[in-house]
């Protein structure tokens, strides 16, 4: 059985995502950073982009296309990194510094 393309994988991935969201929520609360809904939406979109990048590289390697994996990794990886930095700065807005 190929676990990572089975339904069980997506079930596990769902649990990990929930844990990640809860962890981020507590982290932001402890840092005094407010998280209104639009920040969660932005965060969700960024997670999709980052997830797409990782899955694209893996799939391209799996189907025997190393050039696509490399170039896709660079293109989408850079996009994810730059947008990730921008997102982090946006998330920090409204921080309670006291």
């Amino acid at each position: 059985m190929q676990f990572f393309i089975s339904g069980w994988f997506w079930f596990l991935e769902g649990i990990l995502t929930c844990l990640m969201v809860v962890g981020l929520k507590f982290y932001m609360e402890d840092k005094g950073i407010p998280m209104p809904f639009w920040k969660w939406i932005l965060f969700g979109l960024w997670i999709l982009l980052a997830g797409f990048t990782i899955a694209f590289v893996g799939t391209s390697l799996g189907e025997g296309e190393p050039t696509a994996a490399k170039l896709g990794g660079i293109l989408f990886g850079l996009t994810s990194t730059i947008s990730g930095i921008a997102l982090w700065r946006i998330l920090l807005t409204g921080r309670n510094k006291t």
Binding site: Q2, F3, F4, I5, F9, E13, I54, A55, F56, V57, G58, T59, S60, L61, G62, E63, G64, E65
Partner: peptide, 8 residues
Amino acid sequence: GLFGYEAG
């Protein structure tokens, strides 16, 4: 990443 590899 592993999902992608197996999917490929």
